[in-house]
Design a protein around this nucleic acid. Structure first.
Length: 199
DNA sequence: TCAAGGATGAACT
DNA sequence: GTTCATCCTTGAA
């Protein structure tokens, strides 16, 4: 079942990031279906989070989409070469988002190998936000894409993820954010080899 | 095995 | 000019 818009407009982005672990992310780019199970996420909050691009109402052409109502994609370029995929959440004007960091490949594996220029399937095919976007064909064409449409979406397959199998810890690569860098807002499936960084 | 460095562009100072 | 929500290659241990 495709997640409805009402899932994304809920106010607690941290809770939402945790619930997204175990859901399934799919893209349909040029008629090619690829996707898999989400195994790692991070929460970013517009209010009170220095790590967020839209912290305290910062507003640029790049971050404009973050102020929309939840349920759209925020794709942006980092370090000049990688597109990172975020889900905008909460109601309009809040700028909350969830970064998808890693998935466990399931659908369209051959196409993902082709996009990554890899010969055989290995954990680093989709472990990490930059390579994940390459494998799924995500680029800035999807900036602002509707997550309830038919190009990129998330499905709930009814599988239950016990809270005990989800680990929480500090987010990655945001040391500049001061004390907010220590917030345990990264969630991943314990003992899953498709997670981008262990521990 | 692991640390260092490069690629490359948008946003900020 | 500097920083950044990254990843891959290189060369030293």
């Amino acid at each position: 079942m495709k997640l409805p818009a009402s899932f994304y407009t809920r106010p607690d982005v941290v809770q939402l990031a945790q619930e997204l672990v175990g859901k399934y992310l799919y893209t349909n780019i040029d008629g090619v279906l690829t996707g898999g199970k989400i195994v790692e996420t991070e929460a970013y909050s517009g209010e009170n989070d220095k790590a967020c691009h839209a912290h305290l109402g910062r507003r640029t052409q790049r971050t404009e989409i973050m102020y929309q109502q939840g349920g759209v994609a925020y794709v942006y370029l980092v370090y000049g070469m990688y597109n990172l995929f975020n889900i905008i959440t909460n109601v309009a004007g809040k700028a909350d988002a969830v970064l998808i960091r890693a998935i466990e490949p399931e659908e369209g594996i051959e196409e993902m190998l082709l996009r990554r220029n890899m010969a055989s399937i290995k954990p680093n095919l989709t472990a990490g936000p930059g390579v994940l976007s390459i494998a799924l064909g995500i680029n800035r064409n999807l900036y602002g894409a509707d997550l309830t449409g038919n190009v990129i979406w998330i499905e709930d397959k009814g599988n239950i993820v016990p809270a005990a199998s989800i680990a929480a810890g500090p987010r990655i690569g945001i040391d500049y954010a001061g004390e907010d860098a220590n917030l345990p807002w990264r969630f991943w499936l314990k003992e899953n080899k498709w997670v981008s960084r262990k521990k």
